[in-house]
């Protein structure tokens, strides 16, 4: 059955222009098709997850840095919006970019000492960072009201137009997502994106080509977390109330699962992943509490049967490469360690 689903996706891919136009039209008129506020609410949540998964994909999928603490940056964005909007009352148009900038600058603090770490070590640090953010939120009561959370975030206003209904939020979220995807697309197809992918593929070779890998990993991390911050700001305005509960580690794992299941290293992948993994637990409310179990199983199934993700295009498995690299590593070491003996 899985094979049939995948071959269907391949066929649709071949006719991707029509497919894209159809999806575009559907997405644009979607809120007009239903008055069901529940469905609209879910759609907006999906949009937020699309933004989050896409932002994480920029880091995990394009530069291969395993950031598993994206919820931390999401939280920074949300709290930036909530605190400034409730206390200073600045305009939405000023606050939203600030959310991204805050998240990006925090990631720079984190990245400066840790981006030199590779693989699992970087993953651990980001995981820890995400917890540090959550605990800071819980304990810095004068700023964040601790466990009480921040209620009463005003509705956003764009040049005298108040965003108030779910419909409005839907289009605002969609707009942010489209802007994000557009910019990401352009970056990926430029010198910068090529440097990112080169780092993912082989960091030493990238250096040998003159790519300043530390600098480009830093730009990449800041870019990815910037959009997580924006997603956080949008979420804060949409929900009207935020608390640290929204930003637990589970959230990081959920976002990562969306990227992996959908297909990392493609722009479409995280979008597909976000849709599937948000709708799945909603369809069967009884199993919603086992959300993470479902995500875990989804990741395992994907890694085994289709490591490039549902929407991933690469035809070949990664396993062969790993084996080759392993052997190359052994022979390289063997040459070095046997040198004096012979």
């Amino acid at each position: 059955m899985m094979d049939q689903v995948f071959s269907l996706i391949q066929k649709l891919r071949a006719k991707s222009v029509y497919f894209l136009v159809l999806i575009g039209i559907f997405v644009l008129i979607f809120p007009q098709l239903t008055d069901n506020q529940y469905i609209l609410h879910i759609s907006i949540r999906i949009l937020i997850y699309m933004l989050l998964a896409s932002s994480l994909n920029m880091i995990v999928g394009y530069t291969g840095q395993y950031n598993i603490g994206q919820a931390g940056f999401y939280a920074i964005g949300a709290y930036t919006a909530a605190i400034i909007a409730t206390r200073a009352g600045y305009s939405f148009l000023l606050i939203l970019p600030l959310c991204g900038i805050m998240a990006a600058s925090m990631s720079a603090f984190l990245g400066f000492p840790t981006l030199r770490l590779r693989g699992i070590f970087f993953a651990f640090t980001t995981l820890g960072f995400s917890e540090v953010v959550r605990l800071t939120i819980l304990n810095w009561r004068t700023l964040t009201r601790g466990t009480f959370g921040i209620p009463g975030i005003p509705l956003p206003e764009i040049v005298n137009f108040q965003i108030s209904t779910n419909n409005h939020f839907y289009y605002l979220g969609l707009f942010l997502l489209v802007v994000m995807l557009f910019i990401s697309h352009r970056l990926i197809n430029s010198r910068i994106g090529r440097a990112w992918v080169a780092i993912r593929e082989d960091e030493n070779a990238a250096k040998a080509m003159g790519v300043e890998t530390f600098k480009y990993k830093m730009i990449n991390l800041m870019y990815g977390t910037f959009w997580a911050g924006i997603a956080g700001g949008f979420f804060a305005y949409f929900a009207g109330y935020i608390s640290a509960d929204s930003f637990i580690l589970d959230e990081s794992f959920a976002i990562l699962a969306m990227v992996l299941v959908g297909g990392k290293g493609t722009l479409v992948g995280p979008i597909v992943g976000a849709i599937i993994l948000t709708i799945l637990p909603e369809l069967v409310r009884e199993i919603a509490r086992y959300r993470l179990v479902i995500f875990g199983i989804a990741i395992l199934v994907m890694v085994h049967y289709r490591p490039q993700g549902i929407a991933g295009a690469k035809a070949e498995g990664r396993r062969i490469d790993v084996e080759k690299e392993y052997e190359a590593g052994i022979s390289e070491n063997a040459v070095e360690t046997t040198a004096p003996g012979n």
């Binding site: 010198r191 080169a198 593929e201 082989d202 070779a205 040998a208 080509m209 003159g210 690469k314």
Partner: peptide, 23 residues
């Protein structure tokens, strides 16, 4: 160049060369 080939495997041939123009 490298003894144990270090190409950017999941990039096209042209993109591999394009990285070289980075500097």
């Amino acid at each position: 160049t490298f003894q144990n080939i270090k190409l950017f495997k999941n990039m096209s041939v042209l993109d591999n060369v394009k990285i070289g123009f980075h500097t």
